[in-house]
Amino acid sequence: MSLKSKSAVVTGSTSGIGLAIARALAQEGANVLINGFGDPAAIEKERAGIEAEFGVKAVYSGADMTKPEQIAEMIALAETTFGAVDVLVNNAGIQFVSPVEDFPTEKWDQIIAINLSSAFHAIHAAVPGMKSRGWGRIISTASAHSLVGSPYKSAYVAAK
């Protein structure tokens, strides 16, 4: 399927699975916004590499997925730069392993914010444009933990 003239936002895409998803979408012709944390030079190398290799536009947003206003600004950046967000991939995720009685409250809140709430906030910001154009796709990555729990991963399992 060609995604020529489509644009995608992929959260958690400066490395790993998210970067592979962003590259696959670019390979199919989509402009992409990548998002995440990491070494600025490495992120710029990936962003520029996507543009050079696939002949699409690629931009970077360092939006913090625990901050709803930054998520909305990220979606607005993609809409302004590309004219639309046609595909949203909710991929951002973090992990922390600890027995529940020792699990730090701030880690619980951070994992729920990034692994669960950020998807809602991104969808909330992207759906109006998708509806107005009559086209859009939303993909949210999960894991085996959405089906089966694991010891010491209470927040991650709850979010999935």
Rank of each mutant, 00 (worst) to 15 (best):
K6V: 01
S7D: 05
A8K: 08
V9Q: 03
V9A: 06
V10Q: 03
T11K: 09
T11G: 11
G12M: 05
G12Y: 04
G12V: 06
S13K: 07
S13C: 07
S13W: 02
T14M: 08
S15V: 02
G16W: 06
G16L: 04
G16I: 04
I17D: 05
I17A: 07
I17F: 10
G18M: 04
G18I: 04
A20V: 06
I21K: 03
A22F: 04
A22E: 06
R23I: 09
R23P: 09
R23F: 03
A24F: 00
A24E: 11
A24Q: 10
A24C: 06
L25V: 09
L25H: 07
L25W: 03
L25R: 06
Q27I: 01
Q27K: 14
Q27P: 04
E28W: 02
E28A: 14
E28K: 14
G29Q: 05
G29H: 05
A30R: 03
A30S: 13
N31S: 14
N31P: 12
V32W: 03
V32Y: 03
V32K: 04
L33W: 02
I34R: 13
N35S: 12
N35G: 11
N35T: 08
G36A: 04
G36E: 03
F37H: 10
G38M: 04
G38Q: 05
G38T: 02
D39N: 15
D39G: 10
D39K: 06
P40Q: 07
A41Q: 15
A41G: 11
A41N: 14
A42F: 01
A42E: 10
I43T: 12
I43S: 13
K45P: 10
K45F: 07
E46R: 11
E46V: 08
R47L: 05
R47G: 11
R47Q: 14
R47S: 06
A48E: 12
G49K: 08
G49L: 09
I50Y: 09
I50D: 07
E51P: 10
E51V: 01
A52Q: 13
V56E: 00
K57I: 00
K57V: 01
K57C: 05
A58H: 07
A58D: 04
V59C: 14
V59N: 13
V59I: 15
Y60R: 05
Y60M: 00
Y60K: 03
Y60Q: 10
Y60H: 15
S61E: 09
G62S: 14
G62A: 13
G62P: 13
A63D: 08
M65Q: 15
M65Y: 00
M65I: 02
T66Q: 14
K67H: 07
K67A: 13
K67V: 15
K67E: 13
K67P: 11
P68W: 00
P68M: 06
P68V: 01
E69I: 05
E69S: 14
Q70V: 08
I71G: 12
I71D: 12
A72Q: 12
A72S: 12
A72G: 11
A72N: 05
E73I: 00
E73T: 12
I75E: 04
A78H: 07
A78C: 12
A78M: 09
E79H: 06
T80L: 02
T80A: 13
T80V: 04
T81N: 13
T81A: 14
F82L: 02
F82H: 02
G83F: 02
G83P: 12
A84S: 15
V85L: 02
V85S: 01
